[in-house]
Design a protein around this nucleic acid. Sequence first.
DNA 1: CTATATAATTATCATATGATAACTATAAAA
DNA 2: TTTTATAGTTATCATATGATAATTATATAG
Lengths: 143, 143
Amino acid sequence: MDKQVLFLKFFDFITSVHQTTHAFSKGAKLEDVTPVQYKMLEYVAVSQPVTLSSIADCTHMSLPNTSREIKKLMQKGLCEKVADTDDRRKQLIRLSEKGQQLMNGIFGHMLSQLEGRIGTLSDEKLKEIEQALDLLHDQVFRA
Amino acid sequence: MDKQVLFLKFFDFITSVHQTTHAFSKGAKLEDVTPVQYKMLEYVAVSQPVTLSSIADCTHMSLPNTSREIKKLMQKGLCEKVADTDDRRKQLIRLSEKGQQLMNGIFGHMLSQLEGRIGTLSDEKLKEIEQALDLLHDQVFRA
DNA sequence: CTATATAATTATCATATGATAACTATAAAA
DNA sequence: TTTTATAGTTATCATATGATAATTATATAG
């Protein structure tokens, strides 16, 4: 097994995933949300409610900058703060109704893009794809 | 086959790939090269020599901004221009010796990161991984 | 030959992003 | 209780990035 060749395949694969990600998000209307803000919204959508610190950690941002951008997202009415009753230093963030709808729309758009790619495949093929996702996730792209 | 479930799996997978990419590039010393400039270097490294227009296309940048950033990369001694003898409007870009060394170092770093993840796997497992990469690349993450 | 399309450059501007210092409030440890 | 650690805010600055208009040079179509 030539590791050099496998590496090139990985590199090509990662590039393809990035391009596909770009293609998927293209066309989803994101008026008034910057790339960094979108990344934050995506994280909040999946893990809500979350503290500012965990947003900062997971998006590789500093706490001050995270605070600033969340403030902007709240001003746009996309996020809400909830006080943490256990630890009053913490601020729990979650999507607002409007933010939830925005992300639902985006996820729906991505789903339809995916549908366009795998919609016609047989159930056996889909099973194979699912297994491939699991394998790579566990063996290579694990955190 | 529940498409909704498969979508969530895809979403999770894409997130993992992005995080792994981030982890891979972390630690590679990129003094004085911005993220956008790095993206350009990566494209040039793989496809050189390339025209400014193709760099602009593939990195989703405007031509003026591409021109500006390439200029900076040349000032840093990482890229070179070669005139296209066929069409004198075109500027072919390639890595300089220094740029080549930089990218070799980064690719080497990524290779060792990958090695750390799959280095101990059996040849059969590696074959499976290779097939999974091919499958997903062809069926889902194709351009 | 003239008009038009392509490739790239330069200049300029607004905004997004990243970094840091100074600060407040609360919790936990000594 | 005093000290120290944690969570977050605010303000400020420098730089990176994205958008656009105006310009030059060359190629190609009519």
